[in-house]
């Protein structure tokens, strides 16, 4: 995923200036991906170079406004129609840590699992609280749901690891 496609998606709604893109990006993603304003302008100028956006003058407060081009719309369409590959996602530190705990042999793997499970459950409680308090838009709510599903998957996987280890030991 690139910031550029996120910004193109926002620009497909209508012309925006830099700071506005930053704010809307963060609001949609539930602040899980904060942008700094420098990144926003760097990305805009690269997209301008590649013909995906064009500067369209200034708004009434003198801020430079950008508009998506036809090439930009095509690029965005391509992005939406391409599924995300499993291998494009970052490596998971926890998976590696547990694999190494098993490989290290004299490590108390069950304890590693227990410690992580409690921490993940606390995170899940926090996320659920955030969801209950949530008053933002639909995009943000779905991002929150996604983090809940991920934490849940991690918890289930830890349960699975524990059960498998117990079986092997017995």
């Amino acid at each position: 995923m690139s910031i550029r496609h996120g910004m193109l998606a926002l620009l497909s709604v209508g012309p925006r200036y830099g700071y506005q893109l930053k704010q809307e990006f963060e609001a949609s993603t539930g602040a899980t991906w904060p942008l700094n304003i420098g990144q926003v302008y760097t990305t805009l100028s690269r997209m301008e170079r590649d013909g995906l956006v064009e500067p369209g003058g200034a708004d009434d407060q003198g801020r430079s406004v950008y508009t998506i081009t036809e090439a930009g719309r095509e690029d965005l369409e391509r992005w939406f129609s391409t599924p995300v590959g499993q291998s494009d996602r970052p490596r998971d530190e926890l998976v590696i840590k547990l694999a190494m705990a098993v490989a290290a042999q004299d490590t108390d793997v069950a304890h590693v699992i227990l410690t992580q499970r409690t921490a993940t459950m606390r995170a899940l409680q926090e996320l659920t609280r955030a969801k209950r308090a949530h008053t933002g838009g639909l995009a943000q709510r779905l991002v929150l749901d996604s983090t809940i599903f991920k934490a849940e998957a991690e918890q289930r996987w830890l349960d699975h690891c524990e059960a498998v280890l117990k079986e092997k030991k017995a």
């Binding site: 409690t118 409680q125 809940i148 599903f149 934490a151 849940e152 918890q155 289930r156």
Partner: peptide, 14 residues
């Protein structure tokens, strides 16, 4: 047995 529902609790006991 579903972590997502346990997440609603004030306290989770294993």
């Amino acid at each position: 047995h579903e972590p997502r529902y346990a997440g609603w609790a004030d306290k989770v006991v294993f």
